[in-house]
Design a protein around this nucleic acid. Sequence first.
DNA 1: AAATAAGTTTAGGCAAACCTAAAAAATATA
DNA 2: TATATTTTTTAGGTTTGCCTAAACTTATTT
Lengths: 216, 216
Amino acid sequence: MTFSEENYLKSIYSLQKDSPKGVSTTILAQYLESKPASVTEMIKKLDEKGLVLYQPYQGVLLNKNGELVALKVIRKHRLWETFLAKKLDFSWDEIHDVAEQLEHIKSDKLIKELDRFLGFPTHDPHGDPIPDEQGNVIKVEKKQVSQLVPGDTGTCVGVNDTSSSFLQFLDQQQIKLGTVIEIMHLQDFDKSMTVRIDGRELLLSQIATENIYVKF
Amino acid sequence: MTFSEENYLKSIYSLQKDSPKGVSTTILAQYLESKPASVTEMIKKLDEKGLVLYQPYQGVLLNKNGELVALKVIRKHRLWETFLAKKLDFSWDEIHDVAEQLEHIKSDKLIKELDRFLGFPTHDPHGDPIPDEQGNVIKVEKKQVSQLVPGDTGTCVGVNDTSSSFLQFLDQQQIKLGTVIEIMHLQDFDKSMTVRIDGRELLLSQIATENIYVKF
DNA sequence: AAATAAGTTTAGGCAAACCTAAAAAATATA
DNA sequence: TATATTTTTTAGGTTTGCCTAAACTTATTT
């Protein structure tokens, strides 16, 4: 299993939730910052290896095998993220690039010991659940802030966009996991929201409210 | 800088101590489990990049630039080894393969924070000094056990062979860093030595005594 | 239903890093 | 010194993963 193959499987895993009939080569290429032609090549290879279901022109989906591999990579990624945040004082936005590299290290012992060393965490620093060794994932009940209405209150449990610009924005606004967000007002014309956080009032754009998850 | 380039520089660094006039392509190929022809290609590339001095048929040596890069890789390798041994309970022989992968992770912040997290260690679990950020290495006064004579006593500060079979042997014999070794007797015909360790008497072959370093 | 647009695949190339086999240079030996 | 041996390099090939441009499907308009 090469780095590149692992990245493809991980990406398909993320994207197939929104495209349950098949992830298109264009979408996948965009996500991987690659080109559709390159994607076609790779998914043909993954199909031959028995990791994905691929029908020409119909997109690609993981099969059981591929999903298991993807979940193992995701497990490693999230354990490393936890390590970086909890032990090495990385901030939200600095974590991702390094975890992206660390997730490809091959050693069962390493990941088992890291898990133990971190105290068997169930969620990573972005609030996403860490799959167990068998690939089981805990489902979290969560809503986008944009789905709340004035008067509602939620506790931040994760984000969708993990780009460093968005995470930096959250850092600046002191929004992190566990932060309580109360909806004050919905601006009708642009769907922006006035919210209260730790007593401060704050305006969040629609883009922002769609990318913050809360439980309630 | 690719993984492969980093491995070449690191290998040349190790080998040029024993071949100060130039490391031959055959030696380097052997060390890297590769072929002389592949080595020639790569060192030509490293020469063009200004990292090594290469004279056809005369072998290769690092220049200042290449040495600095090599030392940075070695620094990362040894810090990761320390992490695996001290935090993840890896045994002597399990460490190497994983550190070999981790040393190529690219992130200045990562290595700085790891160093801090480990308490700025000066030596790795094999007793080798960890270069600092500027590439300075502490020289250690050390002798092979084979150089001692009956009556001498030394404290284990490192090993030469880092193959897992040798490290497993040391684990079995409970020889580790700091272990005090007293020479009892030298067997003349095969240069094996009877030594005392923690009260136990033990026979070490010449191969073994040449691969254990002690300070005295 | 035909024409156009959008998305996908195929074809042909490129760079990195490896390989084997043949040629060339350096070294050792008679 | 001439010959044989060993070492090194060159030449040509392979695989992986990427690319662009052209050909082909599928979807959308008119």
